[in-house]
Design a protein around this nucleic acid. Structure first.
Length: 616
RNA sequence: GCCACCUUAGCUCAGCUGGUUAGAGCACCUGUUUUGUAAACAGGGGGUCGUCGGUUCGAAUCCGACAGGUGGCUCCA
């Protein structure tokens, strides 16, 4: 198993070379960028001038690759003095390679953004300059590369080209755009098939598809991209999710506040958002020419609420919560389903506290986050997101304040989880460092969800203080925290996590009562059951259509209603099942957190009603 | 915003290289049926083929622009 893993990287990287060689054969004018290993596979960035590769070309490229593999070409390594390498790149008309080599010569690194340069095989041993570079050759194809590779082209396992996409040279949008060819690769055909099968499963669970099928949300061309419209069923889910967050927050005395959705630009000029995010703000002109903006976040408003009164140190921490929409003019190409939208509902909260209270407060929020994601069955991973000292212009405030804040956060993380966290340099918010929580879903994919953000800057900008024991003004600190993050993104994740089969507390319709026929007593009993269920606080629906029972059952199943009851004349006459069903409903009302199997265990009798199967 | 691809009825899709009145299943409406745990039967309505423009005797089909979507890149308070 371990050996497999160890072989996988050279294998995938070798496939990147083979793919580049194949492309070079088909289109000799190809200019190559970089071709690293990524999760599950590899890619190569290629500039083909006017030739645009599309998935219809994949067959030809794969065929060419198979020939190279069949030819069993050895990967041969050669070392060259760097100037000879540069001459090679110039001669072979590979300007991107030439640029990389020149960087290596000058700085000893190619410093790719977001890419581990070691993965590219380009990093030097020391941090200064490079005198020798290595090349790998297979057949006629030669590439600047640190390796390692497999012995020969026949040793590469199973692969498949997956997609082609535009990618900026060196990740900068001012650079020319190349074509990035993605492939996946595994040691065996079986593993590749499993991976492709998982892709299919992910497609089946796609929240956009399920959102449509389950009637949760929709988009309208007239309303606009990135602006989801929530249908009743989706709205119930939003409410259920938010109520759960607020129930957890209830342990720690958060108080509700409400702010308007537009504001004068002055607020954001003072907070620093205007300078930093002006492009992403939706701007509005009032009739007398004053400039307003749709709120893109709530912290400055909440800060104004804090500032509206004087506060004694005795009142702190003060915790404001508000689940509310914010509006951000995201780039059109960034939008997608509910994962990234322009009207975002945040389960937002801001805590105003003394610096001495940071640790206690952070642990309280952390506790809420853990309870929340444990209930959802999603394991969490931690990241301490800190500033990037090489780009000080991206952040508000002095380096000293940042160092202090980051050290403080790091200390409290360490105390809680030792070293079980990663550090994200450059991942901080512009006003402060944060702890980000990544949740793993049922398909093993990770999503950034909750966040605890420490903010020394806005209290400064808005002059927020409390009166301390000595009767002096004491500068306070703000903590920004969201549990679900955004309801839109959260629901996108949860729809896919559960594949639409939600636990009872989250299901938009928890119980459906189906009538067997339209006889008056049957209909009356069914209606009474729905009324009862609603009185127990359940979301219940009635299906009294003049259709076959089989069809109505099928519809309830397809809508993934957790608990379906059929009412017919038997129920009316012998009255035995009805009390049982009532009892079941009482259990559902009392324990909405239950999954179906747990529910069956709890009620302890064979359920006459139909319970949605765990798999369809 | 950038690159590639996609857009036919409410939904899922068919429609060969341009050739008369554009099809299917589901859904919807009407009628019949009154059903016991995953689709009863019959009939009916519904599309200026995303929009605009061009090529052509003729465009769902070819070309262009725009809009929307998808996959990436860039960005993400």
């Amino acid at each position: 198993m371990n050996t497999d893993q160890d072989n996988l990287r050279p294998m995938r990287h070798s496939l990147a070379h083979i793919m580049a060689a194949a492309v070079g054969k088909l289109w000799p004018e190809a200019k190559f960028g970089v071709g690293p290993v990524v999760e599950n596979g590899f890619y190569y960035d290629i500039d083909l001038g006017d030739k645009k590769i599309s998935d219809t070309d994949f067959g030809a490229i794969e065929k060419e690759m198979q020939q190279i593999i069949a030819a069993n070409q050895p990967f041969e390594k050669t070392e060259l003095p760097i100037d000879e390498g540069i001459a090679w790149a110039k001669n072979s008309k590979q300007p991107y390679k030439e640029e990389l080599l020149n960087d290596l010569k000058r700085a000893g690194t190619t410093a790719f953004k977001d890419l581990d340069t070691a993965e590219l095989g380009l990093e030097s041993q020391d941090d200064s300059k490079v005198s020798q570079v290595s090349f790998y050759k297979n057949g006629d194809f030669i590439d600047l590369c640190r390796g390692p590779h497999v012995g020969s082209t026949s040793e590469v396992g199973a692969f498949k080209l997956l997609r082609v996409a535009g990618a900026y040279w060196r990740g900068k949008d001012s650079n020319p755009q190349m074509q990035r060819l993605y492939g996946v690769a595994f040691a065996t055909k079986e593993e590749l098939d499993t991976y492709l099968h998982n892709l299919e499963e992910a497609k089946r669970r796609d929240h956009r598809k399920l959102g449509q099928e389950l009637g949760l949300f929709t988009f309208s061309d007239l309303v606009g991209p990135g602006l989801p419209l929530w249908l009743p069923r989706g709205t119930y889910m939003r409410q259920a999710l938010d109520e759960f967050v607020q129930e957890l927050r209830g342990q720690y005395e958060y108080e509700p506040v409400v702010v308007p959705h537009i504001t004068k630009k002055d607020l954001y000029e003072k907070s620093g958002h205007w300078a930093k995010f002006s492009e992403e703000l939706f701007k509005i002109q009032s009739r007398d020419g004053h400039e307003f903006a749709m709120k893109p976040m709530n912290c400055p408003h909440h800060a104004q609420i804090y500032a509206s009164q004087q506060h004694s140190y005795r009142e702190l921490p003060i915790r404001y919560r508000e689940t509310t929409m914010v509006y951000r003019d995201e780039q059109s190409g960034e939008l997608g389903g509910l994962s990234r939208v322009r009207s975002i509902t945040q389960d937002d909260a801001h805590v105003f506290l003394r610096s001495s209270q940071i640790k206690d407060e952070a642990y309280k929020i952390w506790d809420i986050i853990e309870q929340f994601y444990t209930t959802l069955g999603m394991p969490l991973r931690l990241r301490l997101s800190v500033s990037d000292p090489s780009e000080p212009e991206k952040y508000l405030g002095s380096p000293e304040v940042w160092q202090k804040a980051e050290a403080e956060l790091e200390e409290l993380i360490k105390e809680k989880v030792n070293d079980a966290y990663e550090k994200g340099v450059g991942e901080a918010a512009f006003y402060g460092p944060k702890i980000d929580f990544m949740a793993k879903d049922a398909l093993g994919r990770e999503h950034q969800v909750a966040t605890i953000q420490l903010d020394f800057n806005q209290p400064e900008s808005f002059d927020l203080f409390c009166t301390n024991e000595q009767g002096e003004r004491e500068r306070i600190v703000m903590i920004h925290c969201a549990i679900a993050g955004s309801l839109e993104r959260s629901l996108a994740i949860l729809i896919e996590h559960y594949g639409g089969k939600f636990p009872i507390w989250l299901a938009p319709e928890q119980i459906r009562v189906i009538t067997l026929n339209q006889e008056a007593e049957v209909v009356e009993l069914a209606e009474r059951m729905v009324t009862d269920a609603k009185q127990m606080g359940l979301r219940a629906g009635l299906d009294n259509a003049s259709e076959s029972v089989g069809k109505k059952i099928r519809e309830a199943e397809m809508m993934k209603v957790p608990y379906t009851v059929v009412i017919g004349s038997k129920e009316v006459t012998n009255g035995v099942i009805t009390p049982r069903i009532r009892q079941d409903m009482a259990v559902i009302a009392a324990h909405p957190e239950l999954r179906i199997d747990e529910f069956l265990k709890t009620v302890g009798h064979e359920v006459k009603a139909r319970v949605t199967k765990t798999s369809l």
